[in-house]
Computed example of a mutant assay.
Amino acid sequence: MAQKKSSHRTAEEKAATAAKRDARRARTERARAQAEERRKAAKRKEQLTRFGLVAGVLALIVGGYFLVTNLGSDKPDTAPSGASGNYGMVIGDADAPKEIVVYEDFLCPFCGQLEKTVRDQLDAAVEAGEVNVEYRPLPFLERISDYSPESANAFAVVLDASGPEVAKAFHDLLFDNQPSEEGPFPSKDDLVDLAVEAGAKESDVRPGIEDMAFEGWVDAAGDAASKDGINSTPTVFVDGQKAEGQTLADIAKAMVG
């Protein structure tokens, strides 16, 4: 009897020991599982943190790009010396009985045609003190070619460096050498050559022409014209009234007729 009782206790002890062993294994497995879950969670957090930093940097880059794009040119709209307060250049007697304003684009073919039609008579009227003319170059056709803002900037550079007389000669040469809207378009070197031909000193105008020194002013001129309802070139005002007509000849007549 005593031996049987001992055997029974031994079996119970073995069972208890096995149960404890299984319990330890279960706890160990749970601990391992929890540790693995914590490791994975820490890794996910690290990845999210890195992703957040990258996304933040990308947001700054993209946001900065759109900010610069929406602001347009980052150059100041400082006016060239000799420019009017309306983004133009005035030639002729300030007290002349007739005042003309011409919105133009050096790439616009109709501006070129009007210029050729009225130039001689208009220049004579200016010389006689009968009229003053304000030329306001615009970059309206930049959707076609960069030559539109580049030539307007070059005009501003020449005005700033060499004064109205040389700028007027340069203005005339730009129209005399006007490219087709289909191109090919004059290079900045070509613009420098025309400026020198007009009477400017190369060292005075090349840096500003190459670096688009008055790009901000040119952009501001275009914005101001659009706000004033100018949506095409040439647009001409004679004594404050818009010159109307079905043809360029009608507009020319209002200017010099």
Rank of each mutant, 00 (worst) to 15 (best):
S180G: 13
P164I: 15
L138A: 08
S148Q: 07
Q178D: 09
V196K: 07
D204Y: 05
A198S: 14
N153R: 12
E165G: 08
A161R: 14
D172I: 03
K188S: 06
A167E: 09
E181S: 08
A167V: 03
N177Q: 13
A161G: 06
S162V: 07
A161M: 09
V158A: 08
F175K: 06
D189K: 14
E142G: 12
A200K: 02
V158Y: 01
R143H: 15
H171T: 00
L141H: 01
L191V: 06
D146C: 00
A156Q: 09
K201G: 10
L174I: 08
A200F: 12
A154Q: 08
V158F: 00
A195I: 04
R143D: 14
L173M: 04
S151M: 06
D176A: 15
S203H: 11
E181R: 09
K201T: 15
E165M: 10
P179I: 06
I144R: 03
E142R: 09
V158I: 07
H171K: 10
F155G: 01
G183W: 02
F155V: 02
I144Y: 11
P186K: 00
E197P: 06
E202Q: 15
D204R: 04
D190G: 03
D176R: 09
G183T: 02
E182Y: 03
V196I: 08
E181V: 10
V205S: 05
S187W: 06
D204M: 03
E181C: 00
S148C: 04
L141F: 12
L174K: 01
V157N: 04
L174A: 06
V196D: 11
E182W: 00
N177L: 12
D172W: 02
I144G: 02
L159F: 01
H171L: 00
N177V: 01
